[in-house]
């Protein structure tokens, strides 16, 4: 969480992107110079199914305000079936987060192909705005982890 001079809340967004589709899609939005906010920080993973729900909880614990997980479109996974596992696991994680009272809009799964640079940028813009509206993540952030 950061607050800049004009006091607009700057959410911290962690994006997990699969190497084959979404990371390439993010690169494409860069190549096409499509803007999205600096709030989004991307972590490269081989496949969306590599993302352990623990990573997402860890990000929230450490002060992330939103986490987005991007993978190949269903049926297009480089590893054949990885994103199907992602879809099921995240459905479970999201229902657990609902149960904990974490706003549903703080987490998202999105399918972005390597050709969808524009979709990647649009998704990141929209997601950042959605998280900005929600305000800081106070419920899951562990204050002991906050940098002094």
């Amino acid at each position: 969480m950061q607050v800049n001079e004009n006091k607009e809340f700057q959410p911290l967004i962690v994006a997990f992107c699969c190497n084959w589709c979404s990371y390439a899609g993010a690169d494409l939005s860069g190549t096409n110079r499509l803007n999205y906010p600096t709030n989004v920080k991307i972590i490269r993973v081989p496949c969306s199914c590599r993302v352990n729900p623990m990573f997402i909880l860890r990000a929230f614990q450490r002060g992330a305000d939103g986490v987005i997980l991007c993978g190949c479109h269903p049926g297009d996974c480089h590893y054949t079936s990885g994103n199907y596992f992602t879809r099921r696991r995240m459905t479970l994680l999201f229902s657990m987060l609902d149960f904990l009272g974490i706003e549903r809009d703080r987490t998202r799964v999105e399918w972005v192909s390597a050709a969808e640079g524009a979709k990647f940028a649009a998704t990141m813009n929209e997601f950042t705005e959605a998280v900005r509206k929600l305000g800081p993540n106070r419920r899951l952030e562990d204050l002991r982890c906050r940098k002094q």
């Binding site: 962690v14 972590i43 590599r50 352990n52 860890r58 990000a59 450490r62 002060g63 992330a64």
Partner: peptide, 19 residues
Amino acid sequence: DLSGFSNSQIMAEVDAICK
């Protein structure tokens, strides 16, 4: 665990970004 993208490596990245 996965070599090159281990649990501890990804956790470390998350921590570094969220610091």
